[in-house]
Every structure is written in structure tokens, then in C-alpha cells.
Design a protein around this nucleic acid. Structure first.
Lengths: 279, 279
DNA sequence: CGGCATTTTGAGCCCTCTCAACGAGTGTGG
DNA sequence: CCACACTCGTTGAGAGGGCTCAAAATGCCG
């Protein structure tokens, strides 16, 4: 437990000043110490939505406490999911949405040639599976990039409660709409931007998401390997690597393996040709 | 009126056999003959959802007739919108969703350098503006590619009625989800495919959408200019042109300006590396 | 320490872009 | 009726960004 406590504090140190509640993100726990880990994770998992530091990002957002209790009761908190394990697989029946509580998830599909296509990365507070509501069948596989904890939210309940609680319905519409909007932004990125712009925008996006989660927007750990970044952005791994070293040479970034520090956010935004108001 | 009747029949001839109701699509009416056009269009516009041949693609889908009447009452049927006129502009307040009834719409945004970025094309029965629900502000401009008719659906009513009619809520969730899924497919297309594959997939997609609308899947008119296709797919106009002539040389397509005929759907799918089960 | 996965670096090539010119179609005004 | 301007689509030649192939370097885990 000491090691865990240390990790806990270590992450805490990196939190922005105004953060009071702890979020464990990218928390790589030594897997040989499973007993302690389980205890720790379980405590984390049994936290109610009300007590969850992510609630303002997640489904319960904007609900009253009594309404939140109702939603809370339908959410299953599963055991932590280990690195490289799947939450669901492509073709599985769609029964639940999944909210990431800690860790990081990637979703991808496999084409007829056996090639993997990374669709997206999910950080704590984000919802997985919205694309499967229509057909009732998952189009992608969701796999843990690191040991993660997940809240399972039965979709039938979401539908039912949305009819009862108009705020929840409103929230669901907005969540779905936001996903559409973000996907459209990504389309723009993928179709019109150069490799440097893609990588830059990707880092700025991650930075903003970490900031939302009260984590440092300038210093963070990439939860995914280079191959996944390349795949996601439609680049070759070699290109990703080259761009990162180039940005490092320009003193915009400092990259050490998966650890990234943004040294010059202003310049990074310039290189990416992006609006910098949100960083 | 005679010319209109002719156009009407002409389109009818191109319908698939089982089509009984007429859909006017890509209908370019002589704009100098406005009186007749208006009369014709107005008749078209006052059609109720129940009588609308697109209802199975549009919002009313899967509602009972009495429920459909309720939804129907909230839908405003505006005057036809002329080519190059906007339905709404980027930055406008989001108040309504818009369903295309006839014609074709493109949506796009303008970046800081004044460059246009085409986000999507909308055919009859498709819903515009779903991406703006979240922020309440339109992110794009929606412009008519040809004279089009549009149903305006006040979003407040959609929210309200979705709370009352659970089937409608379900349908809205599915619509939003489908849009997400389609956007993700497009991301894959944009990031991983070659120019030939992009064009091929684009044509197959259009073909499938025309088929859904009881129009010929093998012979249709592109409602948008080459520049918009190129922009949408992240290609140069010249590349689009070159690929089309190449596909023509291979006897896969026959292209005459905006008029396209798919001569060998099988081969087109092969070239696009796509699943052909839906064509 | 040794084996394996991941990341980096280098060299050469190809697809697609850019630039440029031309042809076709359309609307306008003389 | 024709000349002109303008938009749109096509075609050609050359250049460049990112990919592929190859190999070394680094990190990770047993």
C-alpha cells in the first residue's frame, strides 16, 4: 500500500492548484502487488457518482443529488480491467455504455486485411459505446491501454431514465451531439492537415483534456504507444517519431518516451495552426 | 407547369420498380419560371409527414400515426431555398433541426485563413444541425447546392416531445448514434485510404443513399461540384478529376459532367476495398 | 543478462499536391 | 449574333511530404 500511496501523492503533486479531489490517471500500478492493488481499486470503484470527482464530466453532470442517486443505482462498478484486456469486442451485442473512471482506453476495428484502425482514445470521465446505440451491435473493440477502472451503465436504464428525468435526456442529447462535433473536428484534422499539424493538434487536445481533469496541461504521460498515435492520425510510426523529435529540437516539447512536457504552448499552437484560447 | 411535369416524370422513370411515391431529387428547375415553380414547390412543402415519402428515413420513422400527427404539427415547412442560399450560418444560434425534403445541402466551415472546409452533404430525409445541440450554436454554414426544400423542426419541441413519446426519444438517440458511427467511418476513410479508395467509397456511399431513396443506385447526378468533393475528401480537385477519368478508362464508371453511371459495381467495390454487400 | 517490443534514425521512392494551361459551358452586354 | 468574362472541369509537368524498407538504439520484463 505504501507504493500506491506514493503514486497517489505523486499524481497529486502534478495537479493544478485548484484541484482538491484526487484523480488517478495513467496510474500504472505494479501488477505483482495484486492484493494491495485490488483493495485500492475496489475502494475506488465503489465510490458513488456523487463522490466521484469525475461526475461533472460524466453522465450525472447537471443532475440534482436525488436524481443522481437514481442514476447511481443503475451503474455497475466492475473490477479493474487490466492492460490489453477488452471491455467489449467488435460484433458484441450492445448492452451498456461504459464510463472510464481511471486509466485509458482505445477503441479500434480490424479490417478484412487484419489491419487495426484506431478510432479513438478515452480518458476518465468519457463515455464509450455511443456509436453502437443505433445498430445495437458494437462496431469496435475497446481495449485498456493500461490498468483501468470502468463504470458500466446499462443502456436500457439510460433510455428509461432519460424519459423520466428530462435533464438526463437533455444531457444525453448534448453528449451525443458533442461526440458528433468532435468527430467532425477530427475529420477536418485528418483530411486537411500536415503531419506536424496533426501531432500538434493531438497534443493540444490531450493537454486540454488533462486540464479538464485537473491535471497538468503542460506535463503528462501519453497512455498509448506511438503506433496507436500514428494509426489514429493516419500517419506512419516513423513520421510520428520524427515530428516529435523535430518539435523537441525546436524547444517546443520535451519528450522522454511516453512522458511529454509542453515547453512552449504558444509555439505549439502556431505550428498546429490552431486556436490557442483554450490552453 | 409542363416542364415541371416533364421533370417529374423524368425522375419517376429513374425510380426503382417498387417506388410508388415520387421523390424529386436533384431537381433543377428553371429559375426564370418562378410562378409555376413556387406553386409546385408549395404543394410539395405542405405535404404532411404522413404523406411524405421520406418519412421512413426522417424523424417520424417508427411513430404511430397519431404520434406522427403531434410531431407533424411542430414542423415548419418553409419556402423552397434557392441554390447558394444558406439555411443557417456558422455562429448562428441553434434553434431548429432541418430535414432535407428535396434537393441537396452542403455544410462547411471557414477557417482563419478564409479556406472552406466541407463537412458533409445532406440528401432528402437527412437531418442537419445535430452537431449544434451541445453548444446551442451552429458550428457550420449549411448552403443549398441546388434549389431545395427543407422542413424546420424546432429543437425545443424535439426535446419536449422526446420526453413524452418514448419512441421518438429512442429514435433521436439512434439518429445521433448513427451520425457518430458514420463520422467514424469517414475518419477511417480520410486517414487510411488512397485517392482512388476515397472516391470509390464516396460514390458507393452516394449510390447506397440514392438506393434508400428509391432512386437508381447505378445512375445518378452529383449534386456538388468537383471542388466540394475534393474538399470533403481531403484531395485536390485535379486528383478527383484524374481518378474519375481513370475509373472511366477502366470501364468502371461513365462520367459526363455531374452525371455518373456505375458500370461495374463489383469492380468499384474492389478498387475501394469495401464491403459490397450493400450495393 | 538475454529476448522481445518499442522507438528512433537514415535513404530512397511514390502518391498526391502545386502550378500552369486549356477546353467547355453559361450568362452578359453590345 | 458574337465577343467577352467567368466558372468549372480536365490534362500535363514537376516538386515535395510522407511512406516504405532497413537497421540501430532503447526500454522492459522474465
Amino acid at each position: 500500500m505504501l507504493i500506491l500511496q506514493f503514486l497517489f501523492n505523486w499524481h497529486h503533486m502534478r495537479l493544478e492548484s485548484r484541484a482538491k479531489t484526487a484523480i488517478v490517471l495513467g496510474n500504472k500500478i505494479n501488477e505483482s502487488n495484486l492484493d494491495g492493488e485490488y483493495q485500492f481499486m475496489k475502494n475506488q470503484f465503489t465510490v458513488s457518482c456523487q463522490a466521484c470527482s469525475l461526475s461533472e464530466l460524466c453522465i450525472p453532470n447537471s443532475l440534482s443529488t436525488s436524481e443522481m442517486d437514481i442514476v447511481d443505482a443503475t451503474i455497475k462498478r466492475a473490477e479493474p480491467i487490466q492492460k490489453n484486456k477488452s471491455i467489449f469486442e467488435d460484433g458484441d451485442k450492445f448492452l451498456s455504455l461504459y464510463a472510464v473512471r481511471s486509466g485509458a482506453i482505445k477503441s479500434f476495428s480490424i479490417d478484412e486485411k487484419g489491419e487495426e484502425h484506431v478510432i479513438g482514445f478515452y480518458l476518465p470521465g468519457e463515455l464509450i459505446g455511443l456509436d453502437a446505440i443505433d445498430t445495437g451491435i458494437h462496431n469496435h473493440t475497446a481495449k485498456a491501454l493500461e490498468t483501468s477502472s470502468i463504470c458500466e451503465i446499462p443502456y436500457e436504464q439510460v433510455e428509461y431514465l432519460s424519459g423520466k428525468i428530462s435533464k438526463l435526456q437533455k444531457h444525453m442529447f448534448r453528449l451525443l451531439s458533442r461526440e458528433i462535433h468532435e468527430d467532425q473536428e477530427l475529420q477536418l484534422l485528418l483530411s486537411k492537415k500536415t503531419a506536424d499539424e496533426k501531432i500538434g493538434a493531438f497534443l493540444i487536445n490531450l493537454s486540454a483534456r488533462y486540464k479538464q481533469r485537473q491535471l497538468s496541461p503542460t506535463s503528462f504521460r501519453l497512455p498509448m504507444p506511438r503506433t496507436d498515435i500514428a494509426n489514429y492520425l493516419g500517419l506512419a510510426v516513423e513520421t510520428v517519431s520524427r515530428v516529435l523529435t523535430r518539435l523537441q529540437d525546436q524547444l517546443i516539447l520535451s519528450v522522454d518516451g511516453k512522458e511529454v512536457e509542453i515547453l512552449d504552448a504558444q509555439k505549439l499552437c502556431q505550428v498546429s495552426h490552431m486556436d490557442c484560447s483554450n490552453i
